[in-house]
Nucleic acid binder design. Structure first.
Length: 567
RNA sequence: UGGGGAUUGGUGUAAUGGUAGCACGGCUGACUCUGGAUCAGCUAGUCGGGGUUCGAGUCCCUGAUCCCCAGCCA
């Protein structure tokens, strides 16, 4: 089973899959393929992680292999159970299946410690008493070699003794480290005797106080992969410089040795993708939380109304590469619309209501109009929508003095009310004080019931509407990109990304009117509000008083015409 | 100015010495009871300079530009 049909047209074999094919053919791993997604539980997952997950999981799937979910929880000062729980939920929601292989790096601490002992005995690791500052000084620079630590040539016995006492808690934080003995003159700084263990008297979210020495990433990661029998350790580009170290540790130990392959992380227009930044947004109150629908987090996208299918399709389309690129967020939105268009039920909702009175329609009468639930899916069936003398239409669907290309309602003009009747605007009622249009008086043509004129006459526009007496009140939250610029970091000298924050990224509309069938819509359910966009019921909803998040607008050619006119 | 990696339309990606293709976006037009969807068409590209070859995005040389690395973060 491969995922390379359609959309991109033709087969799609990226450089990673090519490498895997190569290894499968050569029998390097006995034909096995086994990948993993190794998040650190120190923040929520975002769309960039979705790319990584889908590469890891997708490769395993394509080759009939296995996929592990493993928490890389080697730094107790940054990691929390809350993040573990959120990550599990997000990966599951996305649709990657790790079977019963949910692992934690912290479960390997004892084994890692034993491996460290092994390295010490081989004379390849030593306890160093240098302070963090001193280590930095000894490391040299990009262009100058480093200097050996004065503790580099301690005896194996002394190293063993000191390391045991580090573990036993005899020394304060930062006082000593265990270092690999490699080459202080290496042009690759990662090889200049990297730290393997640091002393951290901190409580670990799973290990409690069992440990006060914690392994560093470079030391730990390869061991985790090795222990789990991972064949292809896929990671992002910045680890390319670490691969020699990854290989060195495994070679020195002489243990099972996976292959690390690096790919570029995802960047997207109008979006920041660093965990640090996202945490900052939450802490600074720029957004309401990690699941704020404006966040690129999976939790945020989910709340916004994104579907896992759309995100997966997006990941498939962006491909895998080895250089930095910025994907247009329009592609993500395209994938979303494509999915929602197929699956979302259509309903009518009026965001900014303008009252319409049908003067020749009998007072007190109600009719049930037949409406199609999803023209893309006949199986979705039809529903009844109540129609009566007093309705609401969208304010922006009426203009008293319309420009040339505006073909909605205007004085004297006839339009169709979707699934109902043709109406003609006869009067405009205004607030005498402000001049604001408060109500429209219209007549309807009884012969056009259902929306078709027996005499064959056409109207240029079809408007959505709701019956005033039957509509449910709703709150609707309109979202826009968090940033006004494609590149949030494109700021004037001396300013930061805050300069590009869009103050209108959230627009809350109260008093919206929706079809009665929406009054008790369950949280998380998705709809297309006809002519407006896709909307998703927010968990903030109360019974009879739904709250909707706008997931994404419909493609809107009228909006484009308007914008062009303004320019 | 050490080392590592990279460069194909506006954007994202294919082409593994043999017609530079697909998708997003944009622009036309058709159709339409959603200015949606759908359909048709158009738009625009191999970082520069040399070389090898019948033939180069691909191979060689050379230059340019961009990204990563000096955490006891991952």
């Amino acid at each position: 089973m491969t995922s390379d049909e359609s959309a991109g047209g033709g087969e799609r074999v990226d450089f990673i899959r090519n490498a895997v094919v190569e290894d499968t053919k050569s029998g390097r791993f006995g034909g096995r393929v086994h990948t993993r997604f190794p998040p650190e539980p120190n923040a929520y997952l975002h769309i960039g992680h979705a790319k990584a997950i889908w590469i890891d999981y997708g490769v395993a799937q394509d080759f009939g292999g296995l996929f592990n979910l493993r928490f890389d929880d080697t730094n107790p000062t940054k990691e929390e159970q809350e993040y573990v729980d959120a990550i599990i939920e997000d990966v599951r929601w996305l649709g990657a299946d790790w079977g019963d292989r949910l692992f934690y790096a912290s479960d390997y601490f004892e084994q890692m410690y034993q491996y460290a002992l092994d390295l010490i005995r081989k004379g390849k690791a030593y306890v160093c008493d240098l302070s963090p500052d001193e280590i930095r000084e000894h490391r040299g620079t990009l262009t100058e070699p480093g200097r050996d630590s004065p503790h580099r040539n301690r005896s194996v016995e002394e190293n063993l003794d000191l390391f045991a006492r580090m573990r036993a808690g005899e020394f304060p934080d930062g006082s000593r480290t265990l270092r690999a003995k490699i080459d202080m003159a290496s042009p690759n700084l990662n090889l200049r005797d990297p730290v393997m263990y640091r002393i951290l008297h901190a409580e670990h979210h799973r290990q409690g106080n069992a440990w006060c020495v914690y392994p560093m990433y470079d030391w730990a990661h390869g061991l985790e992969d090795s222990l789990e029998g991972i064949t292809h350790s896929l990671c992002s580009l910045e680890y390319e410089n670490h691969r020699p170290l990854y290989d060195w540790f495994l070679d020195q130990l002489g243990i099972y040795h996976p292959r690390q392959i690096e790919f570029a992380r995802l960047n997207m227009t109008y979006t920041v993708m660093s965990k640090r930044r996202l945490i900052e947004f939450v802490r600074a109150g720029i957004v309401r939380g990690f699941d704020d629908p404006r966040m690129p987090t999976l939790a945020g996208l989910r709340r916004r109304g994104y579907t896992p299918e759309a995100i997966r399709e997006f990941c498939r389309r962006i491909g895998v590469n080895k250089f930095d690129s910025v994907v247009d967020i329009a592609l993500l939105e395209h994938c979303l619309r494509q999915d929602l268009n197929r699956t979302a039920r259509r309903v009518m909702a009026v965001l900014r209501p303008l009252k319409v009175v049908i003067t020749n329609y009998p007072e007190g009468q109600t009719e049930e109009m037949d409406a199609v639930n999803n023209p893309e899916d006949p199986a979705a069936g039809t529903r009844k929508v109540p129609f009566s003398r007093e309705l609401y239409i969208e304010r922006e669907d009426f203009m008293e003095d319309p420009p040339k290309k505006f073909f909605r309602l205007a004085p004297g003009r006839e339009v169709r009310l979707r699934y109902a009747y043709f109406i003609t605007c006869t009067d405009v009622v205004k607030d005498p004080a402000t001049g604001e249009v408060t109500e429209l008086r219209c007549t309807y043509d009884p012969a056009t019931r259902g929306g078709d004129a027996p005499d064959g006459r056409k109207v240029k526009a079809t408007l959505h509407w709701v019956s005033a007496a039957h509509a449910a009140d709703a709150e609707v939250r309109l979202y826009d990109h968090l940033f006004t610029k494609e590149d949030p970091d494109d700021v004037p000298e001396g300013q930061d990304f805050r300069a590009n924050l869009d103050p209108h990224s959230l627009d809350v509309l109260a008093g919206c009117k929706v079809e009665p069938c929406l009054a008790d819509a369950p949280a998380g359910s998705r709809y297309q509000f006809e002519r407006l966009g896709y909307f998703c019921v927010d968990p903030d909803s109360a019974l009879g008083r739904p709250v909707f998040n706008r997931t994404v607008t419909l493609r809107d050619t009228w909006a484009k015409i308007q914008q062009a006119g303004q320019g």
